[in-house]
Design a protein around this nucleic acid. Sequence first.
DNA 1: TTGTATGCGTTATCAG
DNA 2: CTGATAACGCATACAA
Lengths: 330, 330
Amino acid sequence: MTQRRPTISDVAREAGVSIATVSRVMRRNDSVSPALAERVREAADRLGYRPNPVARGLALGESRMIGVFVPQLANPYFHLTLKAIAGGTNEDGYRLLVQESDDVTEDETEIVDTLYRHADGVIMLAPRMPDELLQALVDRHPRLVCAGRMALTAGIPSVATDCHSAMLDMARTLARLGHRKVAFVSGSHESWYNMERWRAVQQAAEFGIEAVRVQGGYSVEEGRAATDRALEHEPTAIMASNDLAAIGVLSRLRELGIGVPEEISVTGFDDIPFAAHSDPPLTTARSPEGLVGALAWTMLRSIIVGDPTTPPQPLLRAEVVVRESTGPAA
Amino acid sequence: MTQRRPTISDVAREAGVSIATVSRVMRRNDSVSPALAERVREAADRLGYRPNPVARGLALGESRMIGVFVPQLANPYFHLTLKAIAGGTNEDGYRLLVQESDDVTEDETEIVDTLYRHADGVIMLAPRMPDELLQALVDRHPRLVCAGRMALTAGIPSVATDCHSAMLDMARTLARLGHRKVAFVSGSHESWYNMERWRAVQQAAEFGIEAVRVQGGYSVEEGRAATDRALEHEPTAIMASNDLAAIGVLSRLRELGIGVPEEISVTGFDDIPFAAHSDPPLTTARSPEGLVGALAWTMLRSIIVGDPTTPPQPLLRAEVVVRESTGPAA
DNA sequence: TTGTATGCGTTATCAG
DNA sequence: CTGATAACGCATACAA
C-alpha cells in the first residue's frame, strides 16, 4: 500500500545512467551533458523523485536546518523575532526546527542538545539557564547564538534589547508624573530581561521612586493574581515586567473598580499587538524584535560559513510608547 | 578547533569492542554481558558520545520526528492544540518539527512536502488549500492527518470542532436578544472553519436574522479595519469569525465612541486567553483545542504503527461562552 | 563527461 | 554473547 519512495537508484535505472550522474543533475552540477541531464530530469519527474535531505545531510555532514529554542510559543513577544529568523533562514535555504521549553528552565539544556543533533546551528531565544550551563552548552556546541539575552561572559555571540535603559526611561516618566511608590510585577527571576528591568526600577531610586517587587509571570492570569499582592503595598503605579502580565493587571484593576490611570498607573513591556488595544491602551516599551531575529541569524550564519570576522554583538535600543494607562499620581 | 563529534566507532575503539556491541548497549538491547555493557557506557560517557539520530534514522527508515503545519504561529488559537500535540509526541518519544505558512495558502503544499521528508508523519492544522490539493497530498503522503478541518472527502483522517453548531447557537442567542441584522467579519475564505461559521450565520435566517459579510482576517488590525465596513450595513450585532478580529472590532468601536453592548453587540470565536480580559469581556465560543491536538496525535500514531483499526474521526462540540459584549438589540 | 567505489553513522543480519 | 558486514540514500574523489 504505502509505496516506497523512489530513491536515487530508481531514477538512475529509469534514466539508464549511474547514480553519480543523477546526483550531479540534482545538485545542478553543470559538468553533465544537457541531453543526459534532461533525460535524468524527466525520469525524476516521472517517478516523482525528490532527494532525501536526511541522507544528503549524512553524506554532506550538514542538515541545512537551524534549531530555534524558545521558552514559550504562546508568548506573542517571540513571534516577530521568530518570523524574522524564519525569513532569513528561508532566504538562505535553511529550514527551522522550533522547540519550546514551556517555561521549564531545567529542560533547556536537553532541548538545545537534541536540537543541535539535528541542526547545523542553534539560536536560543531568551534562555533562562544560568551562565555556567550556558557556558557548558557552548563548549559542546560552538554554533550557538543567543537572542534576547546577553551571554558574553559565557562567550556566546549575543544580540538583545537594552531594556534597562528603556525601563529607566519609563520610570523617569512616572517620576515626573509625581509617582513615588511603584510595584514591579516580576517575570521569571531566571530571565535576563526580567532582571535587567527590575534593576532599572530599583535604580529609579535616583528619581525618588521607592520600588517593591511582587511575583508575576508571563500570562494574563499570573498578572491578575499578582495585582492583589501589589496593591498591598499601596503603590501609585504598577510596572509589569511584560505586557501579558500588565494586561492581567489592567483586567484585575477594572474588576476591582480601580481607575486607570486616575488612581493607579500601569506600564508593561514588549508592546505586543494587544497592548495598543487594551483598556486603557497600555504604556509600554517596544523593542526591535524583528531586528533581534535578523541579527541573530546573521551572526549564526557567519559562524556556520566560517566567516572569520567577528560580528558585532549589539545591544539594541528600545523605545518607550506612552499610551493612556499612565497619568499623574493620585 | 571545532572538534569532531565522537561517533560509535570512537566509542568502540575506546572500549575495545566492536561497533555492533556499542550499538546494542545504546539501544538497551540486553543481549550483552553486564560487564561489557558497563565498560561501553563508561567509554561513551568519557567521550561524551550520543548517537546521531540522523544516521539512526537513515538506517531505521524512520526519523522519530513529527511535522506540524500551522498557518500562523502568531495566532493564539493554535497554541493549545500545539501544546497537546507536543505533549503526546514527547511522551511517545517523538520530536516536533513546526512550520508555518504565514497565512499564504500557496506555500502549504511545499511546506508539507518538505516536512514529510524529515518526519515520520505530518499533522496539518487548519490547512486552507482546496480539497483537490489535499487529496494529491495524501496520495503522496499516507501518514497525514488533519486537525481543525474535516477533510473526509479527500480521504484524510480528520478531527475538528463543530463550529457550525456553536456559531448557530450564538446567532440564536442574539436573535433572542432581538437582533435582526448582523454583520459577519470573515476570516479567510479558504478556511474551513471560517466557512462553517459563515454558513451558520447565514442559516440563522431561520431565526429571522439577516446576515451580511465583510472581509476581516486573523489579526486585531484587520478586525479594526473591517469594523468600518461592517458599520456601513448598520447592524445591531457584529459576529467576528475569530477572537482576534473581534478584539479589533471592540477596539475600533471604543474609538468611535460606540457603546458595546448598548449600541452594538459583538461576538468572537475561539476563546483565546485575551477574550476574557477585553473590554468588555468577549462573548465567544470555546472549542476543545487540547482535545483536538491530542486526538490528532492519537490518530497519526495509530497510522504510523500500522494499527489496522480505523480510529474515529470526531467532530467535537464547542461551547458558547456568554460574556458582556452581547446584550439586547438597540 | 560519465561511471565505480568509498564514506557518512547507525542498525540489523548472520556467523562464530 | 560478540563481531564482521551489508544495508540506508546520497555525495564525491578517483578512474576511465
